[in-house]
Design a binder for these strands. Sequence first.
DNA 1: ACGCTGACGTAAC
DNA 2: AGTTACGCCAGCG
Length: 110
Amino acid sequence: MQQSDFFESVFQVVKLIPKGRVTSYGAIATYLGAKKSSRVVGYAMNASHTIPGIPAHRVVNRNGLLTGKMHFGTPTRMQELLESEGVQVEKDTIVGFHDLFWDPSVELAL
DNA sequence: ACGCTGACGTAAC
DNA sequence: AGTTACGCCAGCG
């Protein structure tokens, strides 16, 4: 495997996201020290389809919007998974996103 | 081999 | 306050 060091790092962080918590692409990018590469983080998620154990549904954009929901096979799959973990989702947006936000640069820094 | 696009985010206008 | 442009990197036409 070893897609790219950046991809690999992203996958590691995503896999560390606790159940019932969510994070943003930018948060991961910033944690990796490349906040400008937030786009690449999202792109890494796309590659996560080829790798098992990547809860990509726990990763949303800065607005808490399920931008990648359409990539889960069904447009509602991502929302279903989040709600299944206790995350309230309304209109494809995570309710209380700021409260459920899991920042790797903070959580992993401890 | 070259260029466009794409699960984002920040800055500028 | 809303819209447009740019940066980043890899996959695909």
